[in-house]
């Protein structure tokens, strides 16, 4: 029997599971669900923090719990799948939908608004933006070519040797010619664009955030395989988004979604 690594123990601890155990998907889900319920209800433990634990904080925490769930579920599901192949008794596989847990703050029915309306989107705009420029749906980064409509501020970092093809990003809605970088779903390329618009190099960001340059590059390139732990990845994303004056909650939500999708596609 394998022993659990420190990372695993950390995630098990977050969900109040035995750090030396190999929980079933059912146990993992129940543990997660209990905490999820706790953070989306009132209780004597939460009420004293009413004035400071606001909705955004709760969402952040729920995200962390969700990550813990996904991590443990993926890890131990793989194990239990192995067991199934070897002829163990049936396991129940429970998956939760890969959506943000909906937390609706208590308000009067009339005033009830969706959380999305609350989340401010605030990416700085600078004078250098030319409103007419559109962003290409598919962009290939390479040291040699530059396509015609290539947005001029995209330059590959010096240390990248192989060309990377970034998957398509949706076209931004056109609104009276106003620049709409802020409406793009956040992904690695968007981070790069925001960074370059601000005139920041990878090195600048590294100094500012304390994140290693190679990690920043990997984030922008969406080289997910370079990140072992979802928790670390999220931490990087949030730090990066804050350094770029982006809405860090949205950034984390959207970027981590892409990460999880990648993970699912790359499971055995």
């Amino acid at each position: 029997m394998e022993f659990n690594t420190d990372t695993l123990k950390k995630y098990l601890d977050i969900l109040d599971l035995d750090p030396d155990s190999h929980p079933t998907p059912d146990e993992i889900y129940r543990a997660y669900h209990k905490l999820e319920t706790f953070y989306t209800s009132d209780s004597i433990v939460l009420d004293p923090l009413d004035d400071e634990l606001d909705d955004n904080e709760r969402i952040l925490i729920l995200q962390k719990l969700e990550d813990a769930f996904h991590f443990l579920n993926d890890h131990f599901k793989a194990e239990s799948q192995e067991e199934e192949l070897l002829g163990s008794p049936e396991n129940v596989n429970i998956e939760i939908e890969d959506t943000l847990v909906e937390y609706v703050p208590e308000t009067d029915w009339e005033e009830r608004v969706s959380l999305e309306d609350h989340i401010p989107i605030s990416i700085e705009q600078t004078n250098e933006i030319e409103p007419e420029k559109e962003i290409e749906p598919v962009i290939t980064l390479s040291n040699e070519e530059e396509s015609e409509n290539h947005v001029e501020y995209i330059t590959p970092p010096a240390t990248i040797e192989t060309p990377i093809e970034i998957k398509s990003i949706p076209e931004p809605p056109k609104e009276n010619g106003t620049h709409s970088l802020e409406n793009l779903p956040v992904n690695g390329l968007v981070f790069q664009m925001v960074r370059e618009k601000k005139g920041l190099s990878i090195n600048d960001l590294a100094s500012q955030t304390g994140i290693a340059e190679r990690d920043l590059i990997a984030l922008e390139m969406e080289q997910f395989e370079k990140f072992q732990e979802a928790g670390d990845l999220r931490y990087f994303i949030v730090s990066l988004a804050k350094a770029l004056s982006m809405d860090h909650l949205r950034a984390a939500e959207e970027y981590m979604k892409r990460y999880r999708q990648w993970k699912r596609e790359h499971e055995y």
Binding site: I44, V45, L46, I61
Partner: peptide
């Protein structure tokens, strides 16, 4: 009994301190 788990979680997630029940 659950209060202990909940308190531990708040200390870890909100106050960002290590806590044990």
């Amino acid at each position: 009994i659950e209060t202990g788990f909940a308190t531990k979680s708040i200390l870890q997630q909100y106050f960002e301190l290590d806590a044990k029940y």
